[in-house]
């Protein structure tokens, strides 16, 4: 898609010199009724399952996002396990015991001020083969973002996944740098590669932030189709090409009753890399 943006830019170039001036404008005051936003994940990994509840806010007043307190939040498993989450402050609710099992269906129930919301997600089975590689290369090489920071080099991460052929698979990559999440919206499916090896690569942005020896963790999440669609449309809504869409729309949420956000049951494979010298 990035290339497409560049094509549009390129198409404009001959017409340029005069082209493309930008300015900030005032488009007036908007009011919107606050809506509930949930971000919930249950995985097959040890550790608490976290649900974060916030609200929407008027666009011209984006200061602190209000968090939702005092809600009843419950996660249940198709096998009958059920747990009420504990409020940990700032709209964050955590579990103590429940652990995700691939193949099971999970349901999130939220009661906030008498309003009931729910979401369902089925935890996919994890893939068995996920391989990573990293190399340092000359900046501006194909696929890189030319000129970021002006460094003469960049880091390219490549990955390979052996896709199981029997189901449709959906994947999400979450990338951590020294335990800080730096990217979480890279999702893809196996439409073009069902049952084959999916190989791709990407460049780590802002090269200067990385030093040799830094730890990079990449979590491969096997997500269900609703979550794939949520992140896919989230990227459409926030990505570079959204201005070309005739009808911008909210990301496709799996939360009922007008709730926004997502509840994802996913299996995770964690792999680590070290920034080369």
């Amino acid at each position: 898609m990035k290339s497409l943006t560049r094509i549009f830019f390129l198409a404009g170039v001959p017409l340029i010199l005069s082209v493309s001036c930008q300015k900030v404008i005032d488009i007036g005051v908007f009011n919107s009724a606050p809506q509930l936003v949930a971000e919930g994940t249950i995985t097959d990994q040890q550790g608490p399952c976290i649900v974060k509840l916030t609200k929407t806010i008027d666009i011209d007043n984006f200061a602190g996002i209000p968090s939702v307190t005092g809600a009843d939040v419950e996660i249940s498993d198709s096998a009958g396990v059920k747990e009420t989450l504990t409020e940990a402050g700032n709209g964050i609710y955590i579990s103590n015991t429940i652990l995700g099992i691939p193949g099971h269906k999970y349901k999130l129930m939220i009661n906030s001020g008498g309003q009931l919301y729910s979401a369902v997600s089925v935890m996919p089975h994890p893939v068995t083969d996920f391989r990573l590689g990293i190399k340092k290369e000359v900046a501006g090489t194909s696929g890189g973002s030319p000129g970021t920071g002006g460094e003469p080099y960049q880091y390219r991460v490549s990955y390979a996944i052996t896709d199981p052929g029997e189901y449709e698979n959906y994947y999400r990559l979450v990338i951590f740098h020294n335990n800080m999440e730096i990217s979480s919206r890279r999702v893809f499916d196996d439409k073009f590669h069902n049952g084959k090896v999916i190989e791709d690569d990407f460049v780590l942005h802002d090269t200067l932030n990385f030093r040799p020896g830094d730890l990079i963790e990449i979590d491969l999440q096997n997500i269900d189709r609703d979550i794939y669609n949520f992140f896919r449309t989230l990227r459409m809504a926030t990505g570079g090409l959204s201005f070309l869409s005739a009808s911008p729309a909210n990301p496709l949420s799996n939360i009922t009753n007008g709730g926004l956000g997502y509840f994802s049951a996913c299996s995770v494979i964690k792999k680590h890399l070290t920034i080369p010298g």
Binding site: F30, N31, S32, P34, Q35, V37, E39, T54, K55, T56, I57, D58, I59, F62, I65, E181, S184, R185, L234, A237, T238, P248, N250, P251, L260, G261, Y262
Partner: peptide, 13 residues
């Protein structure tokens, strides 16, 4: 009309 947050980044409503 509004804005909310997913993964600590703003999303337009």
């Amino acid at each position: 009309k509004g804005v909310y947050v997913i993964d600590n980044r703003p999303v337009l409503l």
